[in-house]
């Protein structure tokens, strides 16, 4: 048997069983985004955030400098979001590299107006000092990049909003989806990259549209 996620199995099983078996899996066929029709239009100042905006989560985050950070401060900029953890030896460095590939694919004007946000699964290990050191190691330009930590409860909320699956499997050890999310300037999920080393052209095209 080849590796498959339980979610995919649920898709298969749902069709074979009775009324009390899982149904919502059918919705997994829907696109993973709630793309609004005018998603590429620049956001007007003071426009209320849409009902599906991730920015409306009133959750307190702390950045790599130890300063309080509000997600709604990202409003107006397209934002690329990755959940990760600093001590991850396997795919996280590759995922950060994928986000940097998005950054590199942008025109200088679009790049300057885009925000890149990394949110850790592991706030007890990834202190502001650690996050700061990671940013330096990876040569992340902190005028565009922000590394965030929060309470475990809020990290679970944020992952759920983005559709990121994760488990803590031991001290400083997590399993998690490899998922990079593009939020439009209003904070609505516009597109997601699942897996490693995926093509970044669609992200780049959308971001150029938002920042034109």
């Amino acid at each position: 048997m080849r590796p498959i996620t339980l979610g995919l199995l649920a898709l298969t099983l749902a069709s074979a069983c009775g009324r009390n078996t899982p149904r919502p899996a059918a919705r997994a066929d829907a696109p993973p985004c709630h793309c609004s029709h005018d998603a590429s239009a620049p956001m007007a100042a003071n426009q209320p955030l849409p009902d599906t905006s991730v920015f409306q989560m009133g959750v307190p985050w702390t950045d790599q400098s130890g300063r309080a950070f509000e997600l709604n401060s990202l409003a107006g900029s397209p934002t690329v979001v990755l959940m990760f953890y600093g001590t991850c030896q396997s795919t996280c460095p590759l995922l950060v590299r994928d986000v940097k590939r998005v950054e590199a694919a942008l025109s200088p004007a679009a790049r300057a107006r885009t925000r890149f946000v990394l949110v850790t699964f592991d706030p007890s290990t990834d202190t502001p000092e650690r996050l700061s050191a990671l940013a330096a190691e990876d040569h992340l330009d902190l005028s565009r990049w922000t590394l965030l930590r929060g309470a475990d409860h809020d990290i679970r909320t944020f992952a759920t909003v983005l559709g990121v699956q994760f488990s803590r499997v031991g001290p400083g050890e997590f399993t998690h989806s490899n998922l990079i999310t593009l939020l439009d300037p209003q904070g609505v999920v516009a597109s997601q990259l699942e897996g490693l080393q995926q093509p970044v052209e669609e992200f780049a095209r959308r971001i150029e549209g938002y920042t034109r």
Binding site: M1, P3, T5, L6, S90, S167, F174, T175, N178, L196
Partner: peptide, 19 residues
């Protein structure tokens, strides 16, 4: 993030979707 794999085949596509 729980992924069912068969121990004889640990390097399939699930590895890319999940860390």
């Amino acid at each position: 993030a729980l992924v069912v794999t068969d121990s004889r085949d640990n390097q399939g596509p699930g590895v890319a979707r999940f860390c």
